[in-house]
Design a protein around this nucleic acid. Structure first.
Lengths: 152, 152
DNA sequence: TCCGGGAAGTACCAATTTCAACTATTTTCA
DNA sequence: TGAAAATAGTTGAAATTGGTACTTCCCGGA
């Protein structure tokens, strides 16, 4: 016998969907209109920038950005065409390859980051009290690790 | 001067992204493998089923499901081809049209709903305490209405 | 050493989504 | 009244995404 969601639960669930969808859409819009980057591009730039040597194996990048291998491959291909990243072979494991941040990619990130962060603040962080935001984060953390324990 | 996110804030924000992405992906997988429906299909079926006459104007449906008009049009087209919905002209406003739930669409919803709800429970609701879930919902509600006040 | 299974990445194909035009109708208001 | 502007919805092409097959390479065991 199915145990349905109560009206409250349903409401919470829908708010979750709505909040994420609107937020993502809004941030994407800002980023795209002002810098020609998508959120996906941005996330990749961030991840690469955080890594020593500003380069990372494709599979690691895929895991971190929660993208399928196929999708990441396409994505990096586009970014490579745009001059934001390069591909380099991996000498230790010759099957593998690295995505590396180019100078232009770094510059694009530096330029876009303030806009993105400001968006996250105005649409998310500043809308909530410190403790509300913290609670949101904690809950999401639990949800994420319930589905995929390795996701941190 | 940009005010960057603190490490904690960043962590919360990333958890939010991760939780949504994994949850959505998981629910989609369940629904698709067991019933051949995507989440988008499902949402449309739900919205139509909740409406008197089980029919709704395209634009209202688009708003509720947070989809662009174009996307909804394609989507409904596919669902119509699959026999889940019908289109009907709107006599009051002859530009408009209704999407109406077919019997098959209703049956598909009835069949899929338990699976979907079970997924939402096991991956979201049951992972959190009542108050955590409530806090998540409340925070998301605030975020959503900060971006788009009409989104309820 | 050599084989078989598995991993990393890419390529191809089908499905979905977006963007920009386009048609048809309604609304506004001079 | 009768344009002009706005709205509802669709369409087709281009871009993105997802699934799967394929190629190349690594690794463990016989």
């Amino acid at each position: 016998m199915t145990k349905w969601l109560s009206a409250d639960e349903q409401q919470s669930w829908r708010s979750f969907i709505t909040a994420w969808t609107l937020l993502n859409h809004q941030l994407n819009l800002d980023l795209q209109s002002q810098h020609g980057l998508t959120i996906a591009d941005y996330e990749i730039l961030v991840r690469l920038s955080e890594t020593p040597g500003r380069r990372m194996r494709m599979s690691e990048l895929a895991e971190l950005t929660l993208a399928s291998r196929s999708r990441l491959s396409h994505q990096v291909g586009r970014m490579e065409a745009a001059g934001l990243v390069n591909r380099a072979e991996c000498t230790e494991d010759r099957r593998g390859s690295f995505a590396t941040l180019t100078e232009a990619g770094w510059q694009a990130l530096v330029a876009a980051a303030p806009v993105h962060v400001a968006g996250v603040r105005t649409h998310l962080v500043d809308v909530l009290t410190k403790s509300e935001f913290k609670a949101l984060g904690a809950a999401c953390q639990k949800v994420a690790s319930a589905i995929s324990p390795e996701s941190n």
